[in-house]
């Protein structure tokens, strides 16, 4: 699904004006009057980012941010507040906010923050794809192949690996070639990256 900027603010004029501005700049937007409405309609396949007001009736913006983290919903968050405090900003950034603005703020700055958020999100998206590919490749390997691969990634020599696994260096060499072939790697460094990506969180 196309990246969407979700605006959660209990003030209708702020919602409307932001959505108009972002819409004119070519972003797809969705508006919610409260945090609960957003949580009720959210679908995991959505990509994009969130613009959150902090002080709202019901669940406030910072709590929604925590809730998203708790539910592992990976949407970058931009916080807006009409009631700025250092403490709130600190909490927001600790929870991974992209940016924090005190109202009124120039829309240009919000747009810049939205761009950054979307980039960050697509970056994370790409990273997740790489990770998925690496894990899928690893899953195809046989037990012995994986043992050899892991030791290669740790920087061990063919001879050491052979000694540790109780096979000849020659056989290790055969495994290595087979691994390169299977994973489409051109050099040893590609193998190392594959292992690291698969292991990354």
């Amino acid at each position: 699904m196309e990246a969407t900027v979700c605006i959660v603010d209990d003030d209708i004029s702020v919602r409307d004006s932001l959505s108009l501005l972002l819409g004119l700049k070519g972003f797809r937007t969705l508006c919610y009057a409260c945090a609960e409405d957003f949580l009720d309609t959210y679908r995991p396949e959505w990509g994009g980012c969130l613009i959150l007001d902090i002080r709202m009736a019901g669940m406030d913006g910072l709590t929604l941010q925590q809730e998203l983290n708790a539910r592992a919903i990976d949407l970058p968050v931009i916080l807006l507040t009409a009631h700025g405090s250092l403490e709130a900003a600190r909490t927001a950034f600790r929870a991974g906010a992209v940016d924090f603005f005190e109202k009124p703020v120039d829309g240009e700055l919000i747009i810049a923050a939205v761009r950054e958020a979307l980039e960050r999100q697509s970056g994370r998206h790409r990273q997740r794809q790489e990770q998925g590919r690496a894990r899928a490749l690893m899953a195809q390997l046989s037990e012995r192949e994986r043992q050899v691969l892991e030791r290669l990634a740790e920087g061990m020599h063919t001879r050491e690996i052979g000694a540790e696994l109780g096979i000849s260096p020659r056989t290790v060499e055969v495994y290595k070639n087979r691994l390169m072939e299977k994973t489409d790697a051109r050099k040893l460094a590609d193998l190392v990256r594959l292992v690291l990506e698969a292991r990354s969180q």
Binding site: D11, V14, S17, K103, G107
Partner: peptide
């Protein structure tokens, strides 16, 4: 209360 409409005014102006 004032910051909300000010924010909206600013956005409408940019739009």
């Amino acid at each position: 209360e004032l910051n909300q409409p000010l924010m909206a005014i600013s956005n409408y102006a940019r739009a």
